[in-house]
Amino acid sequence: MVKVLRRPRVRSLVAAAAVGGGLVLGLATPAQADYTSPIYPTLNACNDARPTYASSWTRPQACYPMYNWDGSKVVGYAFLVKTR
């Protein structure tokens, strides 16, 4: 292995792979990501579902209305689930 690393082309490929791997690991986003719950038909159904999303890793936020495409009608309620 030592003799192989004396070759300039192999040495540069190993260095490029190390730098590339470091960039991938260094710039990667964390595995935690917030997400939106499914849409519930009523506010009571939304509030009843929130405790099922609570854990040591997640924290449900307050329910908020979801509107149709032009914002004229409430089509349901959802909440944001935050990861810790």
Rank of each mutant, 00 (worst) to 15 (best):
V2F: 03
V2K: 08
V4E: 04
V4Q: 06
L5A: 10
R6V: 06
R7M: 00
P8V: 04
V10S: 15
A15G: 12
A16S: 12
A16I: 02
A17H: 05
L23E: 12
L25F: 14
L25D: 13
G26H: 07
L27K: 08
A28R: 15
T29D: 13
P30F: 05
P30H: 15
Q32C: 05
Q32P: 00
T36R: 13
S37L: 02
S37G: 09
P38F: 00
I39D: 10
A45D: 08
N47W: 02
D48R: 07
D48K: 03
D48E: 04
D48F: 07
A49R: 00
Y53M: 14
S55Y: 03
S55T: 14
W57D: 10
T58Q: 13
R59F: 05
R59E: 11
R59C: 04
P60I: 01
C63T: 02
Y64H: 10
Y64M: 13
Y64C: 10
P65N: 11
M66F: 04
Y67N: 01
W69L: 07
D70R: 04
G71I: 07
S72L: 04
V74I: 12
G76A: 06
Y77V: 01
A78M: 12
A78F: 01
F79A: 07
K82R: 06
K82F: 00
